[in-house]
Design a protein around this nucleic acid. Structure first.
Length: 820
RNA sequence: GCUCGGGUGGCGGAAUGGUAUACGCGGAGGUCUCAAAAACCUCUGGCCCCUGCGGCCGUGCGGGUUCGAGUCCCGCCCCGAGCACCA
């Protein structure tokens, strides 16, 4: 491996003990533990700061560099806040339930009850090794009954609030994992985990009404301080669209047969030449006359066999559909228009029916062209001739044509006007639709918290009384799912047979478990209260410490975890359990580390094992290297060769601190650079611009040691707290060796002195006609006149500026541009 | 197709509309050494007359705005991520 061929710096030099990360890192990790350095007094803290990181799934492979990258960024931010004087709470836990663990357990033939604690132990070791400022006294695991008791409580609260409901739904079924997948877990028609093509199944499932919260989830995005990329992803996911529901009467059929249609283009209604219903639409049976029944039924059967996903996903699919034989009346024109069914219309969105305007919608155009349906132009762009027939669907801006009294009206205005006109006649209502679906939380698996519900023939669905929580997940040996579509728990009558909590007669437990996203939707509320037995979270500590001050994590969770968490928080807020409705005051999405331009994966063989690197270079060097390889919010490319640079920096820091001169005066020039560095690192660190902060410290090191000078103590000492968030062990060690009291993290951030940082002279850039032609050293507050005179004294400039300048642009402190 | 990011030396990357390439890696030369490693010092975008403190060209491509554009505007190309028949 390339690693072993790299030279390991040997900083040994006579008189100074070598920087030996292995020794000092172990020393400080145990010191932090024995001194409780990272265990804040939650009740006593006066300036609390909650630094949350996304708890990992404890895989058997151990901590991934991707995890460590994210955690290190969080840790630097947290440690920096602490140096600023905040009491920082940096907890850690394990997202240990779920299909991932279960599948691994099945493959290895080891029960997850055995496997998970083992993995967690390994994660703890690695996290400690990395020197994170974690409060291990408040660790949690989602698989701990003391935790999932309250996950079940959250479910009961949603049920109580009317936000949990059961319905039979077409779900994505993975035939290999033998489970239902959320739409979000289906990628290109395939299972996110195993890549198997997903099928459709009809199952009774529990859902949360997250769609009720769509407007609020969307609205709050206006003010929460989150990465724009994350907010955009949520906005797109929620998918608000503004339009109208239009009613089409079906004169020939019974009076009840009125078809409601959702459209974002009510302005084009005069061009609606047919209707299309989803094959599953409930009105299809009633509408279809006998002579079309056979054809319609055949089409519906074909559509229902298809899996949910491929129906939605496949691109460029040929449109299919059949005519029902029925006609509706276009409420604008009064014309009869045919009613078709086609699978390109989805029952889950809008009303499951559309008015087709082939002239101005690409899908409708394609369909009309294939089946020979009429195409009418009702919108024309500025310069377009309305005489010419459309050659392609026109979806651009313009004004209405062929639309009676609305002719000539611009599209935007017409949307409102047409809706209002139809509304007057009871044929339309303005409606906002969302593409967000309700959250299906049922999983037909073993390794999750049982959904706390009991079914009774007499009383129906009964919540498990709170006093009976947790509903313990039984320790069973045969946890393998089969293709019956029900949970392995359903094979254990001794577990699911319980008395009905209402009437006491025979009841039956729900045998599905809940989605792991429910665990992670509330875990951050538990950390302050892990020792609490009778409540999910302590109200006083929650008021004091929450919402979370800083949360940094991957954008792959932008639409699942982060949206679900916001939803659950809002519900608990509305029920009076939380004084806030948004869980995270500030969220930042970090980038991802790739290697050789590709995601790290076992199959590519480009996975970086953090243990190996920390062993060879030390945790401090590894942390710092991860942060140095690119902008934190964009990620970067991992390469072995770069790590030696940061290690060299730490070696030089070590040497400077141990060999510095305690007597004598510091150099004013070095002190100037020091204060510039304090400013730069202090500005860059909270912005997560870690790479440039590190670069600034390296620059300072170059000044500090230039010409092999012996640094002065006053020049070196303030550098130690600056480095501390990035390289905590070496900082602690040097702090101690320089005679500092206690932990460097309680020492405070060095004071920045703008006067000391100011340069008295600077290089003024001189341009002629915008091209750089020279640089002259001038006093910092030079006037334009003096600068111009000094510039013209320069030979090169004088040669180019022969006559009087046409114009002079002077940017104080920067440049002088002479236009001739 | 849509929505977000990105395209800057040999490489990772830096740059409130104001010195493009900070910092690091790599490379070249040197100091120290019997030698090597380490450490330290100097140089390191391309081209031209190496005669200078010289000139020209350079941030994916083509235009534009500006005294001045990597940065702003218009039109493209390429790469990455996410979404995807959402009416």
């Amino acid at each position: 491996m390339t690693l072993s061929t790299l030279p390991v710096p040997d900083p040994a030099s006579p008189g100074t003990p070598a920087y030996d990360p292995a020794a000092i890192e172990g020393k400080w990790q145990s010191r932090w533990r024995s001194d409780g350095t990272n265990t804040p007094d939650l009740r006593g803290a006066d300036r609390p700061f909650y630094q949350l990181m996304m708890f990992p799934y404890p895989s058997a492979e151990g901590l991934h560099v991707g995890n460590l990258y994210a955690f290190t960024g969080n840790d630097i931010h947290g440690r920096f806040q602490r140096l600023l004087g905040r009491t920082v709470f940096e907890p850690m836990g394990f997202d240990a339930f779920g299909i991932h663990s279960e599948n691994y357990a099945l493959k290895q033939g080891i029960h997850p009850n055995e496997l998970i604690p083992r993995n967690i132990e390994n994660f703890r070791r690695q996290l400690r090794r990395a020197g994170l400022m974690l409060d291990w006294s408040r660790e949690l695991s989602t698989t701990d009954p003391a935790f999932y008791k309250w996950t079940q409580w959250v479910f009961l609260k949603l049920l109580e609030r009317g936000l949990a409901y059961k319905k039979k739904a077409a779900v994505n079924w993975c035939p290999l994992d033998k489970t239902v997948l959320a739409n979000e877990q289906v990628i290109d028609g395939r299972c996110e985990r195993c890549g198997t093509t997903v099928e459709q199944r009809q199952l009774e499932q529990w859902f949360f009404r997250i769609t009720d919260y769509a407007p609020r989830l969307l609205g709050n995005l206006e003010w929460i301080d989150w990465s724009d990329s994350t907010k955009t992803a949520q906005r797109n996911w929620i998918g608000e669209s503004d339009g109208a529901e239009v009613v089409f009467a079906v004169p020939a059929s019974s009076a009840e047969s009125r078809i409601r249609v959702f459209t974002t283009r009510p302005d084009t209604i005069f061009g609606a030449t047919y209707l299309v219903l989803a094959p599953e639409h409930p009105l299809v049976d009633a509408l279809t006359p006998a002579d079309h029944r056979a054809e319609v039924t055949a089409y519906r059967e074909r559509a229902s066999k298809q899996d949910v996903v491929s129906r939605k996903v496949v691109t460029d699919r040929e449109k299919t559909g059949v005519f029902t034989g029925a006609y509706a009346e276009n409420p604008a024109t009064g014309e009869p228009i045919p009613i078709w069914i086609a699978d390109y219309v989805l029952m889950e969105y809008g009303t499951g029916a559309i008015m087709a305007v082939p002239g101005h919608d690409e899908r409708d155009w394609e369909f009309a062209a294939k089946f020979g349906l009429p195409i009418v132009r009702v919108v024309a762009g500025q310069a377009e001739s309305t005489e010419e027939p459309l050659a392609a669907p026109y979806t651009g801006d313009g004004s209405l044509v062929g639309s009676g009294r609305f002719d000539g009206m611009p599209v935007d205005e017409a949307k409102r006007a047409v809706t209002a006109w139809l509304a007057d006649r009871g044929a339309a209502t303005p409606v906002v639709n969302y593409r967000l679906h309700d959250w299906c939380i049922s999983r037909q698996r073993y390794w999750g918290p049982p959904i706390p519900v009991i079914y009774c023939d007499a009383c129906g669905v009964q919540p498990v009384p709170e006093r009976d929580l947790p509903v313990l997940l039984p320790d069973i040996a045969d946890f393998r799912p089969d293709d019956s579509g029900v949970s392995p728990l359903a094979r254990h009558a001794e577990w699911y047979r319980v008395p009905c909590p209402a009437c006491g007669r025979d009841g039956r437990r729900e045998t599905d478990v809940s989605d792991t996203f429910l665990d992670s939707a509330w875990y951050f509320l538990r950390y302050t209260s892990t020792d609490l037995d009778d409540q999910p979270f302590d109200p006083e500590l929650t008021r004091k410490w929450l919402p979370v001050d800083s949360y940094i994590g991957g954008n792959e969770h932008a639409v699942l975890h982060l949206l679900y968490t916001r939803f659950v928080t809002m519900v608990l807020h509305d029920m009076g359990y939380l004084p806030f409705e948004e869980p995270f005051t500030r969220f930042r999405a970090h980038g991802h580390i790739v290697r050789d331009g590709a995601k790290m994966s076992k199959t590519k063989g480009n996975v970086v094992n953090p243990d190996v690197y920390m062993e060879q270079w030390g945790a401090d060097a590894f942390r710092m290297y991860l942060m140095f390889l690119g902008p934190f919010e964009e990620g970067g490319d991992f390469r072995d060769s770069g790590i030696s640079g940061v290690r060299r920096f730490l070696d030089r820091l070590w040497k400077s601190a141990l060999e510095c001169d305690g007597e004598g005066e510091p150099s004013p020039a070095v002190m100037r650079k020091l204060h510039q560095t304090i400013k730069k690192v202090g500005d860059d660190t909270p912005r997560l611009s870690f790479n440039t902060a590190i670069a600034a410290m390296m620059e300072y090191m170059n000044v500090l040691r230039s010409g092999e000078r012996t640094p002065n103590r006053a020049e070196v000492a303030p550098l130690v707290p600056l480095v501390a968030p990035y390289a905590p062990h070496v900082a602690e060690e040097l702090w101690e060796r320089l005679g500092g009291e206690g932990s460097v993290f309680d020492a405070g951030w060095p004071a920045y002195d703008a006067a000391l940082a100011a340069e008295e002279r600077f290089e003024l850039v001189v341009q002629v006609n915008g091209k750089v032609r020279g640089r002259i050293a001038v006093p910092r507050d030079v006037t334009q006149e003096d600068a111009l005179a000094a510039a013209l004294a320069d030979q090169t400039i004088a040669r180019l500026v022969t006559g009087p300048p046409k114009k002079v642009i002077f940017v104080p402190g920067r440049l002088l541009n002479i236009v001739v």
